[in-house]
Design a protein around this nucleic acid. Structure first.
Lengths: 340, 340
DNA sequence: TTGTAGGCGTTATCAC
DNA sequence: GTGATAACGCCTACAA
């Protein structure tokens, strides 16, 4: 009979307080009960350092709520998704829920596997940044964030990618630019596609970039897509700027691509001659010379909205799936205001 | 008798396969058993879409392992901690564990509360970035990361803050600097204190900043601590650089402080005259003019090491608590190589 | 109001 | 090998 440091259970508390198990359960769950008993029970709890086993409680309880949710992002290490995670966690904590975070690394197989692992832990719901080949939602309430799911009509919270791109290009046009280059990442990504759409939609009808639009082709001297990472963006930007009749302004549609373009402009000594507006904000953007004008997203807001929507579903909201759109903000710092 | 979409249980599988509950359990847990039965059970599982309830399994199993760990950081939204989280999650996933992430916001009360919440979910262990007033470890295996715990001899994984600071100052001294300013954050933070110690230790004995060292006071025209945020750092840097006999170089001991100093140097037009080395790397650091020389940390490595240590404890490692130190790297980009 | 008993979904210990 | 049975820690009718 070892005096092992077993965690105390309700049974231990009941024994010490000289009451029955169910009385302890009720008191622990907020039922006042007889004051003297409640007091004895509380004393026993303090003495033993008892803490309720939340998992066992979930198993038996009628609502079966685990007070935990899952968050599936491409990569928590990415500052953008980290900010989304922060927003989700904030709302979850308000609700007394904890958040299990997992990174899919944009791999659909891993995404499915992780969703299953989270479901097996009986999370009450899931917030998901879907990968390209995302499967349908699991058997648990799911809200998609940052990108819409591919094959399902489901709750979704998105950034206004189209509107942000329009704002960026309109801003550049207002400063006299007519030849505006576009650099974007994987065009299969919803975000990238929307930003390109916004760019194209903001150009005047007889624009070179739009010439072949009806034929599905884009002017490669102005538009470059499917750039993966900042090195690729650097090369593409250099090529664009060194070409014949180069653009007088650039719209870079993603984080790392903006970084690559900034480096390219500096490498060519053009940072004060060619205008630049990037999508998504960066630390130090204001310390550059010139300061970097960006269309800022609100990732924390994105996460909060997704979590709120999820909890409303968990609470039983049975309305039609809905999509919320979070606006962007144009942050003017210099690079976007270079006139033609 | 509603045909509700209840989750199928082992009982359902057993009934459909025409075997007993225990046989299903054994097969699900990898016992081969009789091939024909195993096959029938697998078919039933597929047909019903059965998935084992991991929480119930944990409750009953002898080792009581939940295959989940908790991660308690100051703020997941902070890119540094996000990278730590990524490292932790990576190792956890290798082990089939999920990671519950929570942000303490540097509040000891919240830290305690969250640790309790995670323990109540029966995590197998905890990785913690302790706040100032961190309590002792909970009743679950705990590894501290980034900062040591205050009142306990426990497993810890730290960045080589002292060594990194020494490297930074030595680098500046090698470029001829003798009056090197120090800007740091909350001195109650272990990281900040260590970096200051490294700075002071790298100065020659009769250095102005060390003059009053024995008396515990530091030359305020060279050393500024307890700066919270980049705005405060901006002000402090301006004050230092505008003073009599200003420093010819700066060592900024933290992320946001570096940002503030970069802005200050630019505001004063001194970015090409005063050298600067920052602690911790920043995106776009290479796109600045001059490029920003930094002592880079390895947050992902930090997280991985902490998680590995934790799992070795979970696996029963009973050796003395140990401390691991992760080295830094000096990344040379220009700002630190400005000669006096 | 309190105690008793049954069960949530699973695993472990037995007989068989 | 398989199957009945008793737990794991807790909640919740129901009876007292």
């Amino acid at each position: 009979m070892s005096a092992d440091t077993r965690r105390p259970t309700m049974k231990d508390v009941a024994a010490l307080a000289g009451v029955s198990l169910s009385t302890v359960s009720r008191v622990v769950n907020g039922d006042p009960g007889r004051p003297d008993l409640a007091r004895r029970i509380q004393d026993a709890i303090d003495l033993l350092g008892y803490e309720r086993d939340h998992t066992a409680s979930t198993l038996r309880r009628t609502d079966r709520a685990s007070a935990s949710i899952g968050l599936l992002v491409a990569d928590v290490g990415n500052p953008f998704f980290a900010a989304v995670a922060r927003g989700v966690e904030e709302i979850a904590r308000e609700r007394g829920s904890v958040t299990m975070v997992a990174s899919s690394d944009e791999d659909p197989a891993r995404e499915r596997e992780l969703a299953t692992a989270l479901a097996a832990r009986r999370v009450d719901g899931l917030v998901v940044v879907p990968t390209d080949g995302s499967p349908g939602p699991a058997r648990v309430p799911t809200v998609f964030v940052d990108r819409p799911p591919r094959y399902a009509d489901a709750d979704t919270v998105l950034t206004d990618n189209f509107g942000g791109a329009v704002a960026a290009v309109t801003h550049l046009r207002a400063h006299g630019h007519r030849r505006i280059g576009f650099l974007g990442d994987r065009s299969t990504l919803h975000t990238a596609a929307e930003r390109l759409r916004g760019y194209l939609g903001s150009l005047p009808d007889p624009s070179p970039a739009r010439t072949d639009l009806s034929s599905g082709r884009l002017d490669p001297s102005l538009v470059r897509t499917d750039l993966e990472g900042s090195a690729a963006a650097f090369d593409a930007a250099c090529a664009l700027l060194r070409g014949d009749d180069p653009p007088t302004a650039l719209f870079t549609a993603q984080n790392l691509i903006t970084t690559g373009a900034v480096r390219a402009l500096r490498a060519l000594g053009l940072q004060h001659r060619v205008a630049l507006v990037g999508f998504d904000d960066l630390p130090l953007a204001d310390a550059l010379d010139p300061g970097l004008t960006v269309v800022a997203q609100q990732p924390v807001t994105l996460g909060r909205a997704a979590a709120r929507l999820l909890f409303s579903r968990i609470d039983g909201d049975r309305a039609e799936p809905r999509t919320e759109v979070v606006p962007t903000t144009l942050v003017v710092r210099g690079s976007g205001e270079i006139a033609r």
